[in-house]
């Protein structure tokens, strides 16, 4: 046996195993690299996962959620139609549903009536996109996070982000007691 053979074999094993491991981990979205921001209050947002209720087009967008920074957003997703859905939020502000870089991507169980809680606290202000990867053309909306980030953050300054016109925001009422956002009439337009 050549003296070099075992050394070459050792190096090959280490390189191939390490390379394969890196290859396995290199999926879009990467590892868990996004840090949540600190928060001092919580906000419950109820979303109905029903493909019929979400009809996005340029003239009639789904309502934009207005939230404050330093708030833990607790998405309460209620399955209504038994179809597969996800709640996905793009990692950076001003990204669209074409983004593969996600901070939240939760698959909603298809059992009708099941409730899925998804919690996230944004670290940076901005206009984020949230959508369902199964129905990216209809079940899509914007999430405006308002506030001032820490001075060390390199995020776009709040003034650079245009606050969206709150066309349909009037249809969202805020419960006085629980601080819950919910659609005014879930039979008429569920989302």
């Amino acid at each position: 046996m050549n003296k070099a053979t075992p050394i070459v074999l050792l190096v090959v094993v280490l390189i191939v195993a390490g390379g394969s491991f890196a290859w396995f981990l290199s999926v879009p979205g990467g590892g868990i690299s996004y840090q949540q921001g600190s928060y001092n209050s919580t906000q419950v947002i109820v979303l109905y996962a029903n493909a019929q209720g979400w009809n996005y087009n340029s003239s009639n967008p789904n309502p934009t959620l207005n939230e404050k920074l330093h708030t833990l957003l607790e998405f309460k997703v209620i399955e209504q139609d038994g179809l597969p859905h996800t709640l996905t939020i793009a990692a950076g502000p001003n990204e669209t549903t074409n983004s593969n870089d996600w901070i939240v991507n939760v698959v909603i169980p298809t059992t009708v009536g099941s409730i899925t809680w998804v919690n996230w606290s944004f670290a940076n202000p901005g206009l984020y996109t949230y959508w369902c990867t199964v129905h990216p053309y209809t079940m899509v909306g914007k999430l405006y996070v308002n506030g001032t980030a820490n001075s060390t953050s390199s995020s776009p300054s709040p003034s650079a982000v245009q606050a969206p016109s709150s066309g349909l925001l009037t249809s969202i009422i805020q419960h006085q007691n629980s601080g819950t956002y919910e659609m005014a009439d879930s039979n008429e337009q569920v989302w």
């Binding site: 090959v12 094993v13 191939v16 195993a17 390490g18 394969s20 491991f21 396995f24 981990l25």
Partner: peptide
């Protein structure tokens, strides 16, 4: 070689 690829995945 394959054993170490699979093994590293398991340890991960």
């Amino acid at each position: 070689v394959l054993f170490f690829i699979g093994g590293l995945a398991g340890v991960g």
